[in-house]
Write a protein that binds this DNA or RNA. Structure first.
Length: 423
RNA sequence: GUGGCUGUAGCUCAGCUGGUUAGAGCGUCGGUCUGUGGAACCGAAGGUCGCGGGCUCGUAUCCCGUCAGCCACCCCA
């Protein structure tokens, strides 16, 4: 027996009406990026595996266990894009964009991570994000943060919260790391098994542990603030002051520590309670060391990525189903002759940019009207034997439930008068 | 990768201590109804009860496996 083929685990098909919500989000994100002076970049869905190993970090979970990696026919190791920043940087280097000064790029598209699916987590998911390179100034951090915030704000999501933090740079992070190690080591036995494993590898990540038994040790852990070097402290203070200046509401949260190796100084997340355990719908920060580590010139950079599935989830939780507005004309032909007369009219309407729908089966008027409802049509254009005989078509306003008669003339004239009548 | 819950009609779900022929609502299609529909009433179609194996005289129902979904951990968007 042939097995039913289904969409791969952790992926989903996008069909109406849901696909319309995606289109709306995409165009809003694009418009916003344009307002901030960002241009779109599109990169290949797959890249040399080495790019992600070097860009994302060898010891990150993404690289260690979540990549879709395969050998191509020439035995080169390729990987489906698990995140956007490394490919964007690769492309900027390849096209020598950095030699032309600061760059502002945005992207929108899928990423792939082999994870166990869960609420707000998929194996193929989609991100909208930006990368801003060439500015070391705090204003660039704020530009990127406020772009992300504007998008969320424009959807009026009440429970979305912006959290920011600073995780220092190569001067102060090692010092803080040592301090954390000293703090956690004596209590190692009382920490959760997961936390114990992470202490040596990445003590910063312990700060966002969700285990209750870790909570007291996390609460009493030294704060990064006390260990920031002067330059980082100043930078962070300027970021906060500028956010205040622009009325972007935020909270400093020392537990925001990003999981990718390349972040420096400012990190931020936008969180929502509607996402269950996956509270982050948007995350980003500064990555002043990444471009050089990928073989480019020392270049400061900031960026963020927003999870589109997660974002739409909270949009729906906050707003419910969108109000449907009626638009377009359903052409209803009762009988072969009537349908033949209507077909050119439909074609002409479409040429004029008016949505026009038509069913081709022999059905009753009522059935056709039901279809018109389902299609969300505003008007029905009805032609039956009576209309053919009297050379008049009935135009019914489905919202106002009012009929009017239009002379059944040649298609182009009729279509034009329809446009006139339905404005 | 680990753990928990769940897979019955297109959708939401009932039935599950094994026992004739598998149930509801919504949706779909048809009729009342060649003419103001989204309604009402009547009717119909639609299921190898996720898949495979086992126990049994007999399994949607019990057991094992598997696949998938959901939720949580890990991690991240």
């Amino acid at each position: 027996m042939p097995e039913k083929i289904t969409a791969p685990r952790g992926t989903e098909d996008l069909i109406p009406p849901q696909s319309a919500r995606w289109q709306a989000l995409e165009s809003r994100a694009r418009a916003l990026a344009r307002c901030f002076g960002y241009g779109e970049i599109r990169t290949p869905l797959f890249e040399a595996t080495e790019l992600f190993v070097r860009g994302v970090g060898e010891t990150t979970d993404i690289v260690e266990k979540e990549m879709y990696t395969f050998l191509d026919k020439a035995q080169r190791s390729m990987t489906l894009r698990p995140e956007w920043t490394a490919p964007v940087v690769r492309a900027m280097l390849e096209h020598h964009l950095l030699a032309q000064g600061p760059q502002r790029l945005y992207y929108i598209g899928p990423i792939f991570r082999y994870e166990r699916p869960q609420k707000g987590r998929y194996r193929q998911s989609h991100q909208f994000g930006v990368e801003c390179t060439g500015y070391a100034e705090p204003a660039a951090d704020v530009e990127v943060i406020s772009l992300a915030w504007e998008l969320v704000r424009s959807y009026r999501i009440a429970d979305a919260a912006l959290k920011i933090n600073s995780i220092g740079d190569e001067t102060c992070r090692p010092r803080y790391r040592e301090a954390l190690l000293e703090h956690f080591r004596p209590n190692l036995a009382q920490l959760s098994p997961d936390a114990q494993r992470r202490v040596e590898r990445n003590p910063l990540r312990l700060l966002d542990s969700k285990e209750e038994r870790d909570a007291p040790f996390v609460a009493s852990a030294p704060r990064f603030e006390a260990y920031l070097c002067d330059a980082c402290r100043e930078h962070f203070a300027a970021v906060r002051a500028t956010l205040d200046l622009l009325d972007v509401p935020y909270r400093v949260d020392p537990r925001v520590v990003r999981g990718l190796d390349y972040y420096t100084r400012t990190v931020f997340e936008i969180q929502s309670g509607a996402l269950g355990a996956q509270s982050a719908l948007c995350g980003g920060g500064r990555y002043d060391g990444l471009i050089r580590s990928l073989g480019g010139p020392q270049t400061p950079a900031v960026g963020f990525a927003l999870g589109m599935e997660r974002f739409l989830m909270i949009v729906e939780a906050a707003q419910g189903a969108p109000i449907e507005t009626r638009a377009g004309i359903q052409a209803i032909g009762l009988g072969v002759q009537a349908r033949a007369a209507l077909l050119p009219v439909v074609a002409e309407l479409r040429r004029l940019g008016v949505p026009a729908f038509m069913d081709y089966e022999d059905r009753k008027l009522l059935a056709h009207l039901k279809t018109a409802d389902r299609n969300g049509a505003r008007f029905a254009l009805i032609v039956g034997s009576e209309e053919l005989a009297s050379d008049e078509a009935v135009l019914r306003d489905l919202e106002l439930r009012a009929d009017r008669r239009l002379p059944l003339r040649e298609p182009r004239v009729l279509a034009a008068s329809l446009v006139e009548a339905t404005i």
